[in-house]
Structures are given as C-alpha cells and as structure tokens.
C-alpha cells in the first residue's frame, strides 16, 4: 500500500513503511477480531457494517470459511519476536494460558465460529488462570464465567468487568510465515490435525475445495512417514480418511 501524502510504500501485514520518506515508521495496530457476522451482531447489536457494491456477478459470499485450518492468530510487538497460534492446534486446546512480551495472556478459540481472541490475564493486580467453559471460559481464582468474544465477565464475582484485549492479527499461515520469519509457534507444528467439528463447519460452497485440501494434507503426512508408498493405495486411504472424518 501507498500513502498519498509522501508516496511511501507500506507493508500491509507489518504496518511498516518499507520504502520512501517514512521508511521504518510503524502504524499503531488496533485490537480487532475476525469472527462470523452472526456472533458479531449478536454481541454488538448497534454495530454498523461496511457495504460495498459487488465487484462482479461471480461474487460469492462465505468462500473463506472452508479454509479455517489454514488460519492463525498472531501477536507482534516491537522488541519482541512475533508469536502465533495456529487454528488447527487451537481446536485441540481452545483455551491457552500463555505469555507474550512479559505479560500473561489468554487465547480463547471458538471452533464453531472460527474466532480466536487474545486477552490480558492480569486484572486488578491479579493474574487469572483460565479454563474452558460452555459459555466461554472460566477462571480458577474466582470461578467467574467470561465471554470469549468480548472478554466481559458474564457471571460470578467479577461480573461486568472486562479483560483488556491484546492487539492480535488474524492471518493465513502462509502469509504470516512469509512476513515473520522469526515467528514462534505455539504447540506442535506437525502433523497437521483436523478435528471432526472443523470439517463439519465447512460450508457446501467450499466443500470440494476443502476436500481436496484434506486429501493433500493426508498425502503430505503419509509422504513424510513413508516415502515409498503406492500412489493408488494412498488415493484409497485418503478417501477412507475423509469418509471417517465425516
């Protein structure tokens, strides 16, 4: 991207000027959340939504949904190496108590909507430890229940209090890898894992795409385990794999 005032060139993911008069300067990132429209309007009924005219008659909605396994949520603060939490790892452990930049944080992942939010765990000079709950997440210290999208306590002694949201960047793993070479990753990197619910979430429009992606993933894993595998057998196995996942 380019600004009109100085004509400097900026990186979209880093928010930093890469060339020109403002070279090296960084735009301040704002906390944002990538979620489904349904849950966003449910939590914030007075929200406004941007509406642009469709670009072409081939315009389709919901085509990003099938790629949930390729997403991650990352944090990047100056002076610290970036850190990322992959969605396919977060499906195994939806609430992660972690720390970044000497600050305790919690990553809350909702698999049904594909939303990952990051909050600070420190509240009123007290560091809370969170675990999974049906309505969001709950803390071990006061047993309050917190909403995973907004970070507001729904019930318990801390009801009405809000956790500070950490500025996180939802991204596709590929582009994150490209821009943050030195990034740390939480959890095990391989083998890639898809749970039943993630596959069920895939909308019908993207079904074929995601199916191919699953087959590719399975092939990749097999290839890593056993290099001299029969391709026909692999094909059959990958089909069986998809059958069992459904």
């Amino acid at each position: 991207m380019q600004d009109q005032a100085t004509g400097s060139l900026w990186s979209q993911l880093l928010g930093r000027a890469m060339e020109g008069e403002l070279d090296g300067q960084t735009l301040q990132a704002r906390p944002s959340v990538l979620t489904q429209w349904k849950s966003w309007k449910e939590k914030h009924p007075l929200t406004t939504v941007m509406v642009l005219p469709p670009l072409s008659r081939f315009y389709e909605s919901g085509c990003y949904k099938g790629r949930l396994g390729q997403y991650l949520v990352g944090v990047c603060q100056p002076g610290y190496p970036p850190k990322a939490w992959r969605f396919d790892q977060l499906t195994l452990e939806p609430i992660v108590n972690d720390s970044y930049a000497d600050e305790p944080i919690v990553i809350a992942f909702q698999e049904n909507t594909g939303t990952a939010t990051i909050f600070h765990r420190r509240l009123n000079d007290q560091t809370l430890e969170f675990s999974s709950h049906s309505a969001g997440f709950t803390d071990a210290q006061t047993k309050s229940v917190w909403d995973a999208l907004t970070g507001i306590a729904l019930s318990g002694p801390l009801k009405g209090q809000q956790l500070t949201q950490e500025t996180s960047i939802p991204s596709l793993s590929k582009s994150w890898d490209l821009f943050h070479n030195d990034s740390e990753y939480w959890g095990v990197s391989l083998p890639l894992f898809f749970s039943n619910q993630t596959v069920e979430n895939v909308s019908s429009k993207c079904e074929e795409v995601s199916k191919e992606y699953l087959i590719d993933l399975y092939r990749l894993n097999i290839r890593k385990q056993k290099k001299s595998a029969d391709p026909l057998k692999l094909e059959r196995k990958s089909k069986e794999f998809i059958g069992s996942e459904r």
């Binding site: 990538l34 429209w37 914030h44 939504v49 509406v51 909605s61 919901g62 939802p170």
Partner: peptide, 14 residues
C-alpha cells in the same frame, strides 16, 4: 443484495 450471510467472516473493530 448486500451478500452478507450469517456465517460470513467479518473483521470487527471497536
């Protein structure tokens, strides 16, 4: 005509 389904991903800002 706005092509916004309930399941569509949105980037929410406050």
């Amino acid at each position: 005509k706005d092509f916004l389904a309930d399941e569509d991903l949105v980037l929410g800002v406050e």
